[in-house]
């Protein structure tokens, strides 16, 4: 059984069919790329997968469980975490606290225990600290843990966003243009980070990307979207040499 199974997904905004008959199947452990020209509907697919938009038709299954019309929160709890095209961190909170927000739903104590700092508070907070530090270490952010998230350099902000997503312990990680706005060095480092996430957490990843070097460098399979429809799907090499794909990207 595929980890993520998407069948016949459609959504229209007014008369525009933003995503039409979209199918996708991702096996556990795969690194899957979603590419396409600007406005092809890539981010819309992400928003459908994470419950920001509700599809008009179609079905989304995570490990066989139907999550089609669930809310963003429920989908996160079901096991899909994401990052955003324009980085969305909790800017006025420390790096550590950003990750601890990600841990919020996994390490629990009651509000009363939190206000009184009694009961499970100390124990659970210690566990959270340990877990957060472990994550920060993996992403090489442990030295910056007390800095405000907004004061991190751009590349590290991306890393922190991925670390926060990983803190929710997802089954599937969605990365929306992680290399956007990065210089070649930062992109290189990002590729290492993604490889690291796969290695350390045995994570299944679906990513949207424009940077072809990154896509061809790390993705195993690709889906190409154009005008909301799937143009081509399959192994990276085959897809990138497909004449239809080249036409969509370069014109005739």
């Amino acid at each position: 059984m595929a980890l993520l199974e998407v069948n016949n997904l459609c959504i229209s905004f007014g008369g525009l069919r933003a995503v039409d008959d979209f199918n996708l199947s991702i096996e556990k452990g795969e690194l899957y790329g979603l590419i396409g020209p600007n406005g092809a509907g890539k981010t819309t697919v992400f928003n459908l997968l994470t419950g920001v938009y509700k599809p008009n038709e179609g079905i989304i299954r995570l490990e066989g469980q139907d999550i089609t019309r669930k809310s963003t929160i429920e989908i996160n709890h079901a096991g899909i975490a994401r990052t955003f095209q324009n980085i969305r961190l909790f800017k006025n909170m420390s790096v550590m606290d950003n990750v601890k927000v990600g841990l919020n739903e996994r390490f629990k104590y009651s509000t009363l225990e939190g206000i009184l700092h009694l009961g499970k508070y100390s124990k659970v907070e210690k566990e959270m600290d340990a877990e957060a530090e472990k994550l920060l270490k993996v992403f090489d952010l442990d030295k910056e843990k007390d800095i405000l998230a907004s004061n991190l350099p751009y590349g590290k902000q991306r890393k922190l966003e991925i670390a926060r997503a990983m803190a929710t312990n997802p089954k599937l990680l969605l990365l929306d243009e992680p290399a956007a706005g990065m210089n070649p060095n930062e992109t290189k480092e990002l590729m290492d980070t993604i490889a690291l996430v796969r290695r350390e957490f045995d994570m299944t990843i679906l990513l949207i990307e424009h940077d072809m070097k990154l896509v061809s460098g790390i993705c195993e399979k690709l889906t190409v979207l154009n005008f909301g429809r799937v143009l081509c799907q399959g192994e990276t090499k085959a897809v990138l040499s497909d004449p239809e794909v080249i036409k969509a990207y370069l014109g005739e």
């Binding site: 994470t50 929160i73 996160n76 975490a81 955003f84 969305r88 927000v101 919020n104 739903e105 926060r164």
Partner: peptide, 9 residues
Amino acid sequence: IAAEATGIN
């Protein structure tokens, strides 16, 4: 938006 995507109600 990020809070919701992180599972925060």
